[in-house]
């Protein structure tokens, strides 16, 4: 599988990273280089192997249903680039 410039632009859009034409051109080569290299994984026989789910055997712990957090609006909003009263502000979204 090799990527072309359209694919690079599509991936950039999906990643929400603006990309210039020149950057896209450069990225085509880089991505193809890296992808060609990782594709050697295809040689590995993985018959009957389950994908890894937990690196170290461990069991998911479940929390009790108790309110222990929240009510920290000032902390939540402290770093907001555009704080509007008690809200985060974003460019108007038309749905």
């Amino acid at each position: 599988m090799s990527v072309d410039k359209d694919t690079v632009n599509k991936i950039a859009r999906l990643s929400r990273v603006a990309i210039s034409d020149a950057e896209a051109d450069k990225m085509v080569g880089e991505l193809n280089g890296i992808l060609a290299w990782v594709e050697q994984l295809g040689e590995v026989d993985v018959t009957g192997i389950e994908p890894m789910t937990a690196v170290i055997p461990n069991k998911l712990r479940l929390r009790e249903d108790v309110v222990t957090d929240g009510d920290v609006r000032d902390k939540v909003l402290a770093n907001a680039p555009a704080k509007e009263g008690s809200f985060f502000g974003v460019p108007k979204v038309i749905e």
Binding site: F87, F88, G89, K92, E95
Partner: peptide
């Protein structure tokens, strides 16, 4: 969407 002319607010 109706609190500000150019911004949407996030809660």
């Amino acid at each position: 969407h109706d609190q500000h002319p150019t911004m949407s607010f996030v809660d």
